[in-house]
Each structure stands twice: as C-alpha cells, then as structure tokens.
Amino acid sequence: MLLALLLSSAAFFLPDAQLPWLVLVNALLVLHGVINKGRISGLIRYIAMQLVFTVVLYLAIHGGNQVGQGLLAVARIFLAVVPGWWLTHSVSGEAIGELLSKFMPSKWAFVAVASLNLLPFMMNEAREIYQLQLLRGARIAPKQLLNPRNWSELCYCVLFPLLVQLLKLAQQTAIAARARHFGHKLRRTHWRLARSKHDHK
C-alpha cells in the first residue's frame, strides 16, 4: 500500500525528465496485474475518455498551442491510477482491511475496503447505464462527446443515475453492517478467506 501511495504521488511530483522511469515501473505493475488476472480494459477506457475530454478542453480554451500540456496531464493521471489498479488486483480486500485497522478506526477501515470492493461493480454499472442510454438515443457516443454541448447530457443520462445507484449500494452496505452488529466492539475480527482442508494440511 505504501508503494502504491508513493508511486501515485510521484506521478504528480516528479519532474518531466524522470517520468520515463516511472513509466517503466508502472509497466511492470500492469504486467504483474495482468498475470494476476486483472482486467486492463476498464483502465484503458477510463484513460481514453480522460484523454478525449482533456484534449477537447485544451483545444477549446487554449487552442492547439498547449495540447501537449494536456497530453502530459493525462499521462500523469494514468501513472497515478495504475498503482491503485495494481493494488486492488494483487492484494485481497481482507488483507487491506486488516492492515488499515492497525492505523485507523475499524469503521474507517471498513468503509475504505467496501469502497475498493465496489469499484469493479460500479464500473460494470456505468457500462450498462451508458449502453442503455445509447440505445435510447442519448447523444453520448464518443464522437458526439467531442462537442462540449453534449457533456450535460452525459451527466444527466449516465453520471446522475450512477450516483443514485451508488447511494443505494452505500445504504444497503450500511444496513448489512448494522445487521451484523458492526461497530459494537472497538476492535473487530477480520474477514479471512475460509481455508480448505488441503490448506490446513
């Protein structure tokens, strides 16, 4: 976790001349994550959308003179996201919760782990909402989003329904935690994966 935090921070604070070394380290992290059966398609789509929005904004505000700075900003964002993606595919949520609870209250650790576990589900929800809104005729196709006038439709058709779904999931998680008497003790036991008989041997 410290490694992921340091690498994500370095993406914003390192000078431009040292970014190639960080790119090499992140490439190794991506390779390790793929070996651990991590899906890189969602990461690529996120960066692609970020690239489109950033380039359009720089073109609209500064013209074509500072597009290179926009590309560099997107590259730094990508380098900052990769360590977190690698962490979620390399370390189990149980291990992260156990570690976090040593440095923060158990309730905060539970919220952090629950948020990490919800990320893949929310990515799938966002993809389904986006595809359904496309079928309804919303002007949110990649080519249509090049026009800033259609960004409000993206917020109304995709981001707002996704936010509502996220609030529902948060409420369901809170109800489930309350039903299991979470928070009645200062130090909680941790969720560990059940070991098979073969593991005990």
Rank of each mutant, 00 (worst) to 15 (best):
L118Q: 13
R45Q: 12
F12P: 01
F103T: 14
K201M: 10
Q131H: 13
P148G: 09
A112E: 07
W86C: 09
L43A: 05
N124L: 11
Q172S: 10
F160E: 02
L14C: 11
L166K: 01
V56H: 01
L167H: 11
K107C: 04
V52C: 02
G42T: 02
L135A: 12
T88S: 11
L72D: 07
S90K: 05
W191E: 03
Q144K: 13
A177K: 10
V111N: 10
K201Q: 10
W86N: 03
V30S: 03
N150L: 06
L57P: 00
A109H: 02
H62N: 05
S106R: 08
A27D: 09
P161I: 02
D199C: 06
G97Q: 15
F160M: 07
G33V: 04
L186P: 00
L14W: 10
W191N: 04
V82E: 00
R195Y: 12
E98R: 15
L59P: 00
L119K: 01
R188L: 12
L72K: 12
H190Y: 03
V30R: 06
E94M: 09
I47K: 01
R192T: 11
L7C: 05
A80Y: 00
W151G: 10
V113L: 11
L146K: 09
S106F: 09
A75C: 08
S106A: 14
L163Q: 05
L159Q: 01
P15I: 08
G70E: 06
A114H: 06
G97S: 13
E94D: 15
Y130Q: 05
A109C: 05
L51T: 10
V74Q: 01
W21M: 12
R39P: 04
L29G: 06
V52Q: 14
N65Y: 08
R76T: 02
I140F: 07
R127I: 06
W86K: 03
T54W: 02
M104P: 08
R192W: 07
A10F: 11
A114S: 13
L31C: 09
I175G: 00
A95R: 15
L134K: 14
L193I: 10
L132H: 08
S92P: 05
K102A: 09
